[in-house]
Design a protein around this nucleic acid. Structure first.
Length: 736
DNA sequence: AGCACGCCGACT
DNA sequence: GTCGGCGTGCTC
């Protein structure tokens, strides 16, 4: 008798392909769970996939069905909570499920090869080691002695803690292992945190204490806004909250930070204050092996705190107890390609589903968040006072550039303020949001302007390199000496950039040590860190730079911040430009006078009486936010309405136009609630050779928008033009 | 997205 | 006569 083969089940597999459908496969005899990673034959190639469902039958004709090739059954499958969160996002942001799922995994788990993370070890003393004495180690083997002492004290040490002892701990540990004193285990059991003793918590002020008490009094899901100016001690509140929430359990916390090089600083602070809580970081400059390892430590529950940038909002955390989103207003939480999610919003959904509290922290909350705090949807926690007793808020003033003559872009008052700082041996910082020498190259005779051929932008003069550059597409050419239009040799670099400002300052203050900080001067990997170090060492008198300098480091000897040119943001067609400018200027102000020296901020503007500056002078976020919210309400902009954007681009504008016009007709047919506007062209009409336009959809609720998109997007995918141009849907867009 | 198939212009 | 351009269509 022929034995009947075991019946094969059908697996629904999600693949990393831009097709919003699942593919059925025979299970091939593998005992596969939902959430498991599999390798499948797909057309002529092999693909990695995630099993999203199992069934006995398939709609697909059996002749077409193939069996999976491999199942990574020894790996834990993606857990149902993370899976459901990603499914929700794929749905909400109109993105194929398979691509959403796969994009959330570390790179190594997106390959068809078995994923190996670098093996990491935990070390402990052997019986021999325990019986030994430190004096048996030679005195000059200093690192071995330190490691031995640390192991005696802590019992087990994970290798991530060992660089604190010495950068060259590996060799020394090797020696200890060879002499039989130390044994190593591959890590699974215990990721210890830090070898140093906990830095004791500083006393909290009244506001901080009140904030903590209110958070502790709630249970289950609860959203909080922690509103406090720079230096008011938000981080301290986070840390004590973490400490209390994770003290007597095995829970985990997710801490989201913006995409800047600030992560290491926060990480170091957390480690020194909470050494007993194993912590991993997840950000873009981790190597593949380390990223995978850290992700797995989070997934397995060993890591208790995950500090990461936006993508880490999708990290599997089996025992999530709380979520923190630091600097929640920061634009880097919004993914600007592929699945255009907002990590802060996803974090909110995640906390709600997990029934855990979430705190959003900011000195200048986004108006969406502020509105939610005003309506009582979020609890509002305010830190009024600067936690550092001696420090005081800087004086902020405007310089009316209508009434004075500028010298190469600088007003006499600002020049005088700089001179005083040099005299007092204090540092200054000048902000200008343009890099290069000058933003425009103009012919005085015929008014020709050097423009980019691929973008609707002006070419920026980089005098030192003698180049003209497009800051949008990277196009670069030699500087022209003669007007290509009329032959005139009288070409003028017009306007000011960082390079020109640096040159002007060098002429005005020949003795001053001036440092420029922009993308051009920090191209080298360690350049920015070196510059910051030099500022701390008082080797620099004046910093000239772009937004890059707004965040992060505190310079105790820096007492003057000058803002050279911001007026363009005041009247931008993007309704969020003013909100961003206010946040940026507040942040910039935080750079001045952190220590016992009072700081001063001087802003050059042609609109000194603009209400943005009036609020800024009083350090009054609340007044500004409330006035902005009134404007938003009148205009029916977010947070009083919800938006979605259909962006399209092609080398020919007619294609874009035809597609968007058809989409417009469809959208208006499909929804009577959502208001769909005629196609609009963005400020940058042409970018990298592509003609662009978008369709704006506005609704009273997220649901209305969602209902429209759910019908509209599949119809657009089937549109005959859809494959001839590039198009994307952006739900809750931040920039236009 | 890949990777095929497929039908029209300049080359060993 | 072939090599190769990228338009269209499919992948369980």
């Amino acid at each position: 008798m022929i034995p009947t083969p075991p019946p094969m089940g059908i697996l629904q597999v999600a693949l990393d392909v831009p097709i919003d459908s699942l593919f059925d496969y025979l299970d091939g005899g593998f005992d596969v769970a939902v959430g498991q990673r599999v390798v499948v034959p797909f057309g002529r190639r092999r693909q990695i996939g995630i099993v999203v469902g199992k069934s006995a039958v398939s709609e697909v004709p059996s002749a077409k069905l193939k069996a999976i090739e491999t199942a990574f059954v020894d790996e834990p499958p993606l857990d149902p909570d993370t899976f459901a969160l990603l499914r929700f996002c794929a749905d909400y942001y109109q993105y194929p499920l398979g691509q959403a799922l796969l994009a959330s995994l570390p790179g190594r788990l997106r390959q068809t090869e078995p994923a190996v993370s670098r093996k990491q070890y935990a070390f402990r003393l052997s019986a021999v080691g325990l019986a030994a004495d430190i004096e048996q180690l030679p005195r000059r083997k200093l690192i071995q002695r330190k490691l031995y002492a640390a192991l005696l004290e802590h019992g087990v040490l994970h290798e991530s803690a060992l660089p604190e002892i010495s950068a060259s701990w590996r060799g020394a540990m090797q020696g200890l292992q060879e002499s039989g004193w130390v044994e190593a285990d591959e890590v699974l059991a215990g990721l210890s945190a830090s070898v140093s003793a906990a830095v004791p918590p500083p006393p909290l002020n009244e506001d901080q204490t009140a904030a903590l008490q209110r958070m502790q009094a709630s249970e289950g899901f609860k959203a909080w806004l922690l509103h406090g100016i720079t230096g008011s001690g938000k981080t301290e509140v986070y840390m004590q909250w973490l400490q209390q929430m994770l003290a007597d359990n095995d829970g985990q916390a997710l801490v989201l930070v913006p995409e800047i090089n600030l992560t290491p600083q926060l990480e170091a602070r957390f480690r020194s204050r909470l050494p007993h809580l194993p912590m991993v970081a997840l950000h873009s400059n981790l190597g593949e092996a380390e990223r995978l390892q850290n992700w797995r430590l989070a997934q397995s529950g060993i890591a208790r705190i995950v500090v990461g940038t936006r993508l880490s909002v999708f990290t599997p955390l089996p025992r999530l107890r709380l979520v923190i989103v630091d600097e929640e207003h920061d634009g880097s939480y919004k993914q600007q390609d592929s699945m255009r999610y907002h990590a802060r919003d996803v974090a909110m959904v995640r906390a709600q589903r997990a029934k855990v509290p979430i705190v959003l922290g900011s000195a200048t909350p986004s108006l969406e968040t502020w509105h939610n705090a005003q309506t009582g949807k979020y609890g509002l926690l305010t830190l009024q006072n600067r936690a550092v007793a001696k420090s005081q808020l800087p004086r902020i003033g405007c310089i009316d550039t209508n009434r004075v003559e500028l010298q190469d872009g600088l007003s006499p008052a600002l020049i005088e303020a700089l001179r005083q700082r040099l005299e007092r041996k204090e540092q200054s910082l000048l902000f200008i949001n343009r890099r290069g020498y000058s933003p425009v190259l103009l012919c005085n005779a015929c008014h020709w302007i050097a423009s980019c051929t691929r973008c609707s932008s002006r070419l920026v003069v980089h005098l030192r390199q003698s180049r003209l550059r497009c800051h949008h597409c990277g196009h670069e050419q030699k500087i022209v000496r003669q007007c290509p239009s009329c032959g005139n040799a009288d070409l003028h670099p017009t306007g000011h950039g960082t390079q020109r400002l640096e040159e002007t300052l060098a002429r005005l203050f020949p003795m001053a040590r001036i440092q420029r900080v922009d993308r051009d001067s920090t191209r080298r990997k360690e350049a920015l860190a070196d510059i910051l170090q030099a500022v701390h060492a008082d080797e620099i008198d004046i910093l000239v730079g772009t937004q890059m300098l707004a965040k992060g480091h505190d310079f105790p000897n820096l007492t003057l911040v000058g803002v050279v040119d911001t007026d363009s943001a005041l009247f931008s067609p993007d309704f969020r430009a003013a909100e961003r400018l206010f946040a940026q200027l507040m942040q910039v102000s935080g750079r001045a006078g952190r220590a016992d020296k009072p700081g001063e901020v001087l802003i050059q503007t042609t609109f000194p009486e603009h209400n943005l500056f009036n609020a800024l002078r009083k350090h009054d976020y609340v007044a500004y936010a409330d006035s902005q919210l009134q404007e938003r309400q009148l205009a029916q902009f977010p947070p009083y309405a919800f938006l979605a954007l259909l962006r399209a681009e092609a080398n020919q504008y007619s294609l874009v136009q035809d597609f968007l016009n058809d989409a417009l007709v469809l959208a208006r047919q499909l929804s009577e609630h959502v208001l769909t506007y005629d196609p609009v062209r963005p400020q940058m009409e042409k970018l990298k050779g592509m003609e662009r336009a978008y369709l704006l959809m506005q609704g009273e609720s997220r649901l209305q928008i969602q209902q429209l998109l759910r019908q509209l997007v599949p119809q657009l995918r089937a549109h005959p033009l859809a494959s001839k141009l590039r198009w994307t849907v952006d739900v809750d867009p931040l920039e236009f």
